[in-house]
């Protein structure tokens, strides 16, 4: 039964190019060949090798299926943010889909739709302040001194450059608007 259902939906995938697929091609540029969700055969190797499959309800195959069907609701699923980007599926996908990239682009769509975890925004905000994605702690400062390592401080010149790049790419607006 289930197999038949998958077959039907897969044939639907092959019939049309969806909005998600178009966005993927646009965002991934020259890699349109591998970003074509229509090529997914739903073999399930990705879910089979994904370490999250054992421990959670996260299923890569289903994410790719829903995205391929142009199911925009898929990007509202919190599952997107469970992927650890471990690349196990990338190594095994027999069609050669660049699955982690696809998930990244789906995350971009989710962010544009206002679905972004607070933790992601926090890291981005920290980066805009310090140029780094990790906080500076008192212990580390003390240890760096004892180890004779350079004092960690925000490099004003680097930050000016990073700030300009963040502005030019629209990243700043995206982060500060949250």
């Amino acid at each position: 039964m289930f197999g038949l259902w998958v077959c039907r939906e897969s044939s639907l995938i092959s019939m049309k190019t969806t909005k998600v697929d178009k966005v993927l091609r646009e965002k991934l540029g020259a890699k349109e060949f591998t970003s074509m969700l229509t090529m997914c055969e739903q073999c399930g190797v990705c879910s089979g090798i994904c370490p999250l499959s054992k421990l959670t309800d996260f299923r890569v195959r289903k994410i790719i299926l829903r995205a391929g069907l142009g199911d925009i609701e898929a990007i509202k699923s919190s599952d997107l943010w469970l992927c650890m980007m471990c690349y196990a599926c990338l190594e095994r996908c027999r069609t050669g889909l660049e699955i982690p990239d696809i998930i990244s682009v789906l995350r971009t769509l989710a962010i544009e739709d206002g679905n972004v975890p607070d933790s992601t925004i926090k890291v981005a905000q920290m980066f805009l302040k310090t140029g780094h994605a990790f906080p500076i702690s008192g212990l580390t400062k003390k240890m760096r001194k004892e180890l004779g390592l350079d004092e960690i401080k925000v490099d004003p010149e680097a930050m000016e450059e990073v700030g300009k790049l963040a502005e030019k790419t629209g990243f700043k607006k995206l982060v500060e608007g949250k």
Binding site: L28, R107, T108
Partner: peptide, 9 residues
């Protein structure tokens, strides 16, 4: 984090 925001960024 950053690649999720946008590939270009």
């Amino acid at each position: 984090v950053f690649r999720s925001f946008d590939q270009e960024v």
